[in-house]
C-alpha cells in the first residue's frame, strides 16, 4: 500500500498544474522548495565558504551596506537602508528580506522564514559599555501562527581589543560579548566595535533553532549606523 501511495504521489507531482494567475500548483512549489534546499546545502559545504564578495566589487557602491550571513541556512544577503521609523532603521535586500536595527542592534527581521517578529533589546550604548546584566526578550511566531515570547537574562563582558577582517580589510576592534540564558537555551551574541562606538561586525541571534546572523558592515558612509 505504501508503494502505491508513493507512486500516486509521484504521478501527481509529475503532472504539476498551471493556472492563469501564475499560482504555482502545490506540486511545483514543493519541487522548487526542494531545489532551493539542495542549492542552499551545496552553498554551505560545512567548511569555510568562499568569500561572497570582493572589495573591488564593493567599490562601486556608495550606499551603506551590511552583509548578513546565516551560516545554518547557507545564506548570504546584502542589505541597504530602506525605511526609518523613529530610532529604528529597516534595511532591505533586493529580494524582499529586511532587517530592522535600532542603532545596529537587530530588533526585527522579515522574509528569512525564521524571523524575529519583535525584540526588546538594550541600547547600543549600553552594549558598547561592555558591562551590566539585563533581561531581553524576543517575539517569534510558531507553526500554529501564535506569537511566542522568550525572555533571557543576559550579561555583557568586554573581551578587549582584537582584529577582525571584513572583506579583505582588517579592523582593530573592541570585542563585547552578551551571554544570555533562559528557556533552557544558552547563546552568546558578539559585537566588535571600531573606534569607540561604530559597530563593524556582530553576531546576533536570529532564532534558537537557526542560530545567529553574522552582520558585517561592508560599505561605510556618512550615515554610520551604530553611532548614537
Amino acid at each position: 500500500m505504501t508503494r502505491r501511495i508513493a507512486l500516486a504521489a509521484g504521478l501527481a507531482l509529475a503532472l504539476a498544474g498551471c493556472a492563469s494567475d501564475g499560482t504555482p500548483s502545490p506540486a511545483l512549489a514543493v519541487a522548487r522548495l526542494a531545489q532551493a534546499e539542495v542549492l542552499s546545502r551545496r552553498a554551505a559545504p560545512g567548511g569555510e565558504a568562499a568569500p561572497a564578495i570582493t572589495r573591488a566589487q564593493l567599490a562601486q557602491y556608495d550606499t551603506p551596506m551590511i552583509m548578513a550571513e546565516i551560516p545554518s541556512a547557507g545564506l548570504t544577503a546584502f542589505v541597504v537602508p530602506f525605511a526609518r521609523n523613529g530610532a529604528v532603521e529597516t534595511w532591505s535586500t533586493i529580494d524582499d528580506r529586511t532587517i530592522a536595527f535600532r542603532g545596529g542592534i537587530m530588533v526585527a527581521t522579515r522574509g528569512f522564514g525564521p524571523d524575529i517578529l519583535q525584540s526588546d533589546a538594550p541600547e547600543i550604548a549600553r552594549i558598547a559599555s561592555g558591562t551590566g546584566t539585563f533581561r531581553r526578550s524576543y517575539y517569534f511566531t510558531d507553526g500554529a501562527d501564535q506569537t511566542r515570547r522568550f525572555e533571557y537574562l543576559c550579561t555583557l563582558a568586554d573581551r578587549g581589543m582584537t582584529t577582525v577582517t571584513v572583506v579583505e580589510r582588517q579592523h582593530t576592534v573592541r570585542h563585547v560579548t552578551e551571554s544570555c540564558s533562559g528557556n533552557g537555551v544558552d547563546f552568546v551574541n558578539d559585537y566588535w566595535f571600531e573606534g569607540g562606538g561604530f559597530l563593524r561586525k556582530s553576531r546576533q541571534l536570529l532564532t534558537p533553532e537557526w542560530g545567529h546572523v553574522v552582520l558585517s558592515r561592508v560599505v561605510d558612509n556618512a550615515r554610520n549606523i551604530g553611532l548614537p
Binding site: 505504501t2 530602506f82 521609523n85 529597516t90 524582499d96 528580506r97 530592522a100 525564521p114 507553526g143 501562527d145
Partner: peptide
C-alpha cells in the same frame, strides 16, 4: 510502520514569504 503528524504545528514553523513594506511614518 507508524507515522506521527502534529497538525497544530506547521513543521516549517512560521510561514515564510517576502518581507512586508515597512510602515512609512
Amino acid at each position: 510502520a507508524q507515522f506521527f503528524i502534529n497538525p497544530g504545528q506547521r513543521p516549517t514553523g512560521g510561514i515564510r514569504g517576502g518581507a512586508p513594506d515597512p510602515v512609512e511614518v
